[in-house]
Amino acid sequence: MNIIEVENVTKRFGKHKALDCLSLSIAQGRIFGLLGPNGAGKTTLIRLLTCINTADSGSICFLGHPLTSADVSNIGYLPEERGLYKKMKVSEQAIYMARLRGMSKKDATESLQQWFHKLGIESWWDRRVEELSKGMQQKVQFIVTVVHRPDFLIFDEPFSGFDPINAEQLKSEILELKEKGATIILSTHNMASVEEICDDIALINKGQVLINGAVNEVRRTFRENRFHITFSGQPDINELPEWMQLLAQNTDNQTTTLQLQLAEGHQANDLLQHFITHHPILSFGEMLPSMNDIFIRTIQEQNENH
């Protein structure tokens, strides 16, 4: 079942069309990567999903019914531009934000205490926000986003400002939230993390969806007939057949790794047959394009076409 159905949504700011008849759906219980260059319309889309703005035309359904502002208590949103009241105590502030999302004071306090304990930051409870470092504030913001146990979470660049250890901790928290049944939108420019934790992606540019689908499928559709092969011994690379183009080579004393581009009409088996007779093969695999490559290629192609 889809938690979000966006259909033909258009949003203008003055003469600028931020979203142009955009449609996409987000399946429940998955991590959805929302990708796109700066100014593509990601933030606009997110602000429509969080009821901050309303669409000029088109419809947005949440759990099967049209999205209304009553649903925001079931949504958690961590914006890219995020901050906290500097003069307030961490706990007071977190309780305030939780209450704005409809929790009772008692419920909010209990839930927050659990989260502070979980992330090992109980000692921050009574400190003022201004005493915390930027990364520490980000942790508090993350907790504030998820404290009301929403079914639908939106993280806009959640990893920015975190050191690798905290980024890893955040990643595992996000995956845990998914396991507990939450649906998550992850908007980021960090393509490595997209490949790592996203199930589905949508690449949007100029207010339109360019690519939409499961991460693995997307990468497979963009396959370029490239393979890597590792074997013992050192082949004479001048003897490679015409249909095999060498992309890269890595040789040490005993083993050789080649990255090869096969011409159209030739397949993995042709490649294996070529080497298997002369060299013992140690490993072999297809090289799928990275999300980074797909991102750059697709956006450049679209920009060239316009």
Partner: peptide, 15 residues
């Protein structure tokens, strides 16, 4: 609230 960027979190919870 605008300059310390708390406002977007708030307006996603309250009108």
């Amino acid at each position: 609230e605008k300059s310390n960027r708390i406002i977007e979190v708030i307006v996603s919870s309250v009108k």
